[in-house]
Amino acid sequence: MSPVSLLLNILWVVLGGFWMALGWVVAAVIMAITIIGLPWARAAFNIATYTLFPFGQKAVSRDEHLGRSDVGTGVLGLIGNIIWLVLAGWWLALGHVVTAVILVVTIVGIPFAWAHLKLAGIALWPIGKTIVPA
């Protein structure tokens, strides 16, 4: 991780990134408790880590990254994302959008607000994504 990414990640954690990562962990734990929610729990834990340290990483589609489709990028992934959107995605995305609006008021918060908006999109459709170095 570059020094700039490290500094941005430290500021990110202090300025609200920790709370949103905690929201992702809560969603993952709730999904894991219901045994049928394990695929969503895995995706939520991966994105919780990304939410905690977003700078220096990016989320990409697994089929684009690996060059082949898998279960999460096909029809089952689509169904899984629709279920996720209804159960947890909308409130995680809402949390990211509200945090972005609060941060965009300050000049210093604009890069963090942009990161929250990218995470809001991922919150709506996380299945089939992988986190890679930027």
Rank of each mutant, 00 (worst) to 15 (best):
N46E: 07
G16S: 11
W12E: 01
I35S: 11
V105Q: 09
V13C: 07
A44Y: 13
A32H: 06
E64Y: 00
V26S: 12
A123K: 10
G23A: 14
P126D: 01
L7W: 14
W125M: 10
I47E: 00
A32P: 06
I10K: 05
V14F: 13
G72N: 12
F18N: 07
M20Y: 06
N9D: 08
I107S: 04
G56M: 11
G77A: 03
A59P: 08
W125Y: 13
L92T: 10
G128P: 02
I102P: 03
F112S: 01
W84T: 10
L15R: 12
S69P: 07
G72K: 06
G128T: 03
V98N: 06
I10F: 08
F53M: 13
H65V: 02
W19H: 04
V132Q: 02
L124M: 07
W19N: 02
K58A: 13
L7V: 15
L22V: 08
I33W: 12
I82M: 12
W24S: 01
K118T: 10
N81A: 01
L119I: 05
T34H: 04
V108S: 03
G128A: 05
L124T: 00
G74H: 08
M1T: 12
L22S: 13
W84R: 12
A28F: 13
T49R: 15
I36K: 10
L15F: 15
L94M: 07
T73H: 11
W84V: 10
T51S: 13
E64Q: 02
A113F: 15
W40I: 09
S2K: 15
L66V: 01
M1H: 14
I47K: 04
A88L: 07
I47D: 00
